[in-house]
Design a binder for these strands. Structure first.
Lengths: 228, 228
DNA sequence: CTTTAATTCATACGTTCGTTTTAATCATAG
DNA sequence: CTATGATTAAAACGAACGTATGAATTAAAG
């Protein structure tokens, strides 16, 4: 005893929760759905995690910890190679968003299921989720933000922050909507099967993000200019 | 009798529902919260709308009907002036996304509250919401999609559809996140008060969207090319 | 006025929610 | 073996949910 007994009940619950939260949202998923799908007793969630909220947080933590460490690792590597010189915007965008998207192909890291969950949850109204994600994301966000400031010294910082914002939104949608938004818009991408789709999504999204990031600066109608 | 008695109870419920659905999501908002905030009896929602789902749909319809009619009107006008020639991409983007964003300044049309609700709901997991929005959006989507095809004849249609997709995501986030994503990312836009923020958001987002829309086409690693 | 339909109200229904409790089962150490 | 702690299981808890009912109230018509 006293050893960390990593029974598979925990993992089964996390897997079921991840998939159901992705499909129906946090409020729309009940503990009975989760435990039923996981094939475990109802009380198991509270025993292993303490509460439904704690389960949601743990479901994110086991994926985000790896993702953000990987993002840090990639950034460290690129900056070491750059030897003090600013990175290229394309490198930074790929380090942040490319690393995320490549998770989708790694079933061991949650695959597309987690990515869709993340995409949807970034607009999730629940207070505790937003607060949790803010804490989890703060460190890596600041690092990449700084890298972008150095890479684009002529672009006002406020503008860069906004465009990072926009890039997050486009990426979130691209992920969450791989089959959700198609329902909303009733679009159909012809000539592509589902295996192709993800491989092609990455370069498509990267082109779009970089185009937006490097777009000409906006002209405001009034006279006040944004500071740098 | 027999006249359409447009009492203010209906409107009070719609206003309260719009705000609460925006703040806490559909599943996270109860009928008791809504009726309490509206200052009406609990049974009033089922009397006036029939069900909670029907209330949600009506809350969207009263805003989306105007928005999509306005989008159609603007597109008709531009195409009439173009006299058969293709529109400029910037015109099309402004007609679709600019019209949406300008709603935020019109309190009579729901203002920022509705825009945030819409932004969040586009990723809402609930099936009936997505199905409803798909129906409401289909017509205007197809029109703008066609306009973009004509404006960008050299860009593969599949690419345009994806980029429309990305633009929707960026816009949705920009709206929903005007104070929600700031919590997630812990970013602070200095040097701007809240009245400025919205006025400047429009040109900022437009620059980004157009930069992404007109970005160089992605290079796929395999040989198969997307059709036109 | 009276009549009639529309609306509001208080209240209750049956269900489902997240959580807790208590007992049963399992695994391991001595 | 017995003893001990970890895990699973069945059952119940009170609270909150969306909805339905029937009476009270309001407003307009004749």
């Amino acid at each position: 005893m006293a050893e960390i007994r990593t029974g598979d009940t925990r993992e089964r619950i996390l897997d079921a929760g991840e998939r159901l939260f992705m499909a129906h949202g946090y409020e729309g998923t009940s503990m009975r759905q989760i435990t039923s799908e996981a094939g475990v007793n109802l009380a198991a969630v509270n025993y292993h995690f303490g509460s439904k909220e704690a389960l949601m947080q743990e479901a994110f933590r086991r994926r985000l910890d790896w993702l953000n460490e990987e993002r840090m690792r990639v950034l460290d590597l690129m900056e070491a190679e750059a030897d003090g010189k600013p990175l290229k915007p394309s490198q930074i965008v790929d380090g942040f968003f490319g690393t995320l998207l490549r998770m989708a192909g790694d079933e061991k890291r949650g695959g597309v299921t987690f990515l869709r969950l993340l995409g949807r949850t970034l607009t999730e109204p629940s207070e505790f989720i937003r607060a949790f994600l803010a804490h989890e994301y703060k460190e890596v966000m600041d690092r990449y933000k700084e890298a972008l400031f150095r890479a684009l010294p002529d672009v006002p910082k406020a503008e860069i922050v906004w465009r990072f914002h926009f890039m997050l939104g486009a990426t979130s949608y691209a992920i969450a909507g791989t089959d959700a938004l198609r329902l909303v818009t009733d679009w159909q991408i012809e000539d592509e099967d589902s295996t192709d789709r993800l491989d092609r999504l990455v370069p498509r999204l990267m082109s779009f993000l970089l185009g937006g990031l490097r777009a000409p600066l906006p002209q405001f109608s009034d006279t006040t200019a944004a500071s740098n």
